[in-house]
Amino acid sequence: MTRHLGDDWVLPELSDLNRPFFTSGQVQVQVCDDCGVLQQPPDEICGSCQSTKLSFRATSGEGSIESVAVVHQAVHPALKDACPYAVVVVSLDDAPGVSVIGNVLNRDPGEVAIGQRVRACFETCPSADGEETLKIPQWEVV
């Protein structure tokens, strides 16, 4: 099994806004070419200066856990075997104001705690249409 929640679990539908994050093998966040502000999730316009000149920037993939919720009850039948699992919000060291969502792969859910230092890892699998390779960012406590 290459994916934490099961190889058949839902994949992101790729778009211009999320392709860098899900396929680059880096934790990339959106940056405004005009004012330099970072935003996540990406959008079609900069929320700070309203520029539409936006690109993506790789981060170090290192950060801290801002919050954790341990899911016990599957809200989809396909997740039954994956429970319990930990959903975390991670702030990135070199992308101030930006957080991303993920799972922690190398600890039991009950051992995941706010404030723990984490490093990105990636789940590699084909996209749903088989045309691209996904490298889905995930997290390991360091």
Partner: peptide, 17 residues
């Protein structure tokens, strides 16, 4: 329950959120 989710859910659903 499809294989993919788009928009805002694309950032959350793959992680079981």
């Amino acid at each position: 329950g499809g294989r993919t989710m788009d928009g805002d859910m694309a950032w959350k659903a793959p992680y079981g959120l």
